[in-house]
Simulated scan of single mutants.
Amino acid sequence: MSSQTRLTKAYKEAKRISFTNQDKFILFSDCHRGDASFADDFANNRNIYMHALNHYFKENFQYIELGDGDELWENIFFKTIFEANKNIFLVLQKFFNQGKLHMIYGNHDFIFRNPNTVKRVLSEYFEPREGKNVPLFPGIKYNEAIVLENSETKQEIFLTHGHQADFMNYVGWKINRFLVQVLWKPLQVWGIKDPTSPAKNYVELIKVERRIKKWIAANGNKITITGHTHRPRFPKPQDNALHYFNDGSCVHPRSITGIEIVEGTITLIKWYIDTTDNGTLQIVKEVLEGPCKLDDYK
């Protein structure tokens, strides 16, 4: 099965969510939530991500995660990830309880494509204060892709992780997972990068982007938003470019990036730690690109 066939299959089988120009979504991907060890790339940005989550929940956003939310290659058990990031999962639970949490699996959390695994791992957790298991995400569904469909304009936005365009991270993901667990995780502590990841291998990154753009060109220049490569992408509508977006990642050095879809517009944003004039640290949001009207992407 080619990358084009895999992307087409993901699109055709995608969960469909109807929205209007009054709705608000925040898209993050590639959080790679880990176990807080020295090999945990997410650890440095945990507080930034937590602050952003609370902001979006208070502002009535829906949360969509475009894959690789949890680092389940370096970490064998979800329990260790949960214990290191319990406060974050409890904020995500608030979105879930209001029907505003939508999850897509990527190559690093590929195990969540199995509904039985999702049910066993994510339905509940042990709460020491109560001495029993309590609900976490009972009945949650993970999808390979989501299509947002504007009920007013009928415009579609195709959301997926993007690893469909990466043979070894889709078909050969178990091999790559094994190599990460036994080889690259220990070496990462010493600063040696994993060459199997397109996020750390520029040649592979370009190949993945080229395959995704080829699919977009063959499918009516449909707005497509992915993660996987960790490289933010935001085409301007007036450039007549292919409508390929990428929300970046939550493991950039000292910052996280994402995409906001707000009241019929799309914006690439960054959250990071800044200092005030008196030296006080604060977490702030910066607009990197946009906002642009979705209607302008024809």
Rank of each mutant, 00 (worst) to 15 (best):
residue 173 W to H: 11
residue 62 Q to R: 14
residue 53 L to Y: 08
residue 165 A to E: 06
residue 59 E to G: 02
residue 143 N to M: 09
residue 103 M to F: 11
residue 158 F to I: 00
residue 142 Y to T: 06
residue 174 K to Y: 11
residue 170 Y to D: 03
residue 54 N to P: 06
residue 107 N to I: 14
residue 39 A to W: 15
residue 168 M to C: 04
residue 142 Y to Q: 03
residue 154 K to C: 04
residue 164 Q to R: 05
residue 116 N to E: 15
residue 132 K to C: 08
residue 51 H to N: 13
residue 136 L to M: 10
residue 63 Y to D: 02
residue 137 F to W: 06
residue 95 F to Y: 13
residue 53 L to F: 11
residue 122 L to T: 06
residue 140 I to A: 07
residue 151 S to R: 15
residue 107 N to T: 13
residue 113 R to C: 08
residue 52 A to C: 09
residue 54 N to R: 14
residue 108 H to G: 02
residue 48 I to P: 03
residue 76 I to W: 00
residue 89 F to W: 03
residue 83 E to G: 02
residue 158 F to W: 03
residue 170 Y to N: 05
residue 92 L to P: 04
residue 90 L to T: 08
residue 171 V to I: 14
residue 61 F to C: 04
residue 110 F to M: 11
residue 108 H to Y: 12
residue 114 N to Y: 05
residue 47 N to I: 10
residue 49 Y to F: 15
residue 82 F to I: 08
residue 100 K to W: 07
residue 86 K to C: 09
residue 99 G to I: 01
residue 119 K to I: 07
residue 132 K to I: 03
residue 100 K to P: 01
residue 152 E to H: 14
residue 63 Y to E: 06
residue 105 Y to D: 00
residue 107 N to W: 09
residue 116 N to H: 13
residue 157 I to P: 00
residue 108 H to I: 08
residue 140 I to W: 03
residue 76 I to P: 00
residue 155 Q to V: 05
